[in-house]
Design a protein around this nucleic acid. Structure first.
Length: 275
DNA sequence: ATGGTAGGGATCCTA
């Protein structure tokens, strides 16, 4: 009996959500925090200066908060029920730290980060090359993190659908932004260096389809209603963390809300193995 | 079929 209690207490729920403006979505966020009760939340596209971040209502839900925001665009944050330490704003080697796209902290003996990879606009655009450069610099930093030999989880909007299974229409997205060969190569480079895509690992052990893990549906042309989605939000785990995956799922309820974000939260549960 | 919708905040940029 006591042992089950111990295992229960060591389960940790970590969510990643591109909220697309925390001020517009604040009420939805609070409702969801109270209902879903995640231990750690990694947010992207908060779209708010740090001085205007709505700290109080979130702290009232029992969370500590660290933020890295800017005006109008981007912006990342970490919420945790545990103390947040060793906070890092941006990552070493990030070429353009004025774009608020990365924040990292240690909480409850786990290193977590929230990343918002550039969208890239369209293949060949200046913003596309900016995205590829960001991914290259990010790759080098993630190698440094691997060297720590810690449990590390980087959740966020990577703006990459890793394979054709991760888009609702592979032909439509062939050579297009979010699914182009160079973006996918950048993704694989990170994966092949030792990071575990939590969903890919979970799919390998369960009878589920990749479409179960779509996290983004375009606001336009009734994409949500027709389930024309993409899997572009991901959790990357070091092997030390991947060994503890219990479940992973997408909270699609939020995408069905009135005035929703165009992304749904990706939710990972870890279990500490008792040996 | 090169549109469509949403957010920020400024009369367009980003996604």
């Amino acid at each position: 009996m006591w042992m089950w209690q111990l295992i229960f207490n060591l389960t940790m729920k970590i969510a990643s959500w591109n909220i697309n403006s925390i001020r517009t979505r604040l009420e939805q966020l609070i409702t969801w925090l109270n209902e879903s009760n995640p231990d750690i939340v990694l947010l992207q596209e908060t779209k708010v200066l740090d001085e205007n971040f709505p700290f109080e209502p979130i702290e009232d839900c029992g969370y500590n908060i660290v933020v890295h925001g800017q005006k109008s665009y981007n912006g990342v944050a970490i919420l945790s029920k545990f103390p947040l330490e060793d906070i890092q704003i941006g990552f070493p080697g990030q070429k353009d730290p004025s774009q608020a796209r990365y924040i990292e902290a240690v909480t409850n003996n786990l290193r977590v980060a929230s990343v918002y990879v550039p969208n890239g606009q369209e293949v060949g655009h200046d913003k596309y090359h900016y995205k590829l450069k960001f991914l290259e610099d990010f790759f080098h930093y993630t190698n440094q993190l691997q060297g720590l030999n810690e449990r590390v989880i980087i959740g966020g909007d990577y703006n990459i659908a890793p394979t054709d299974l991760d888009v609702y229409d592979a032909k439509k997205f062939q050579d297009r932004i979010l699914a182009s060969p160079l973006e996918r190569r950048a993704w694989r480079k990170i994966i092949h260096s030792g990071w575990i895509d939590a969903v890919a690992a979970y799919l390998g052990t369960n009878d589920l389809n990749a479409e179960t893990f779509y996290t983004w549906w375009d606001y336009r042309q009734g994409s949500w209603e027709q389930n024309r989605g993409l899997r572009i939000d991901h959790f990357l785990l070091t092997p030390q963390a991947a060994d503890q995956i219990k479940t992973i799922s997408v909270d699609t309820d939020l995408r069905g809300n009135i005035r929703p974000s165009d992304h749904a939260p990706l939710i990972l549960e870890l279990t500490q193995l008792i040996v």
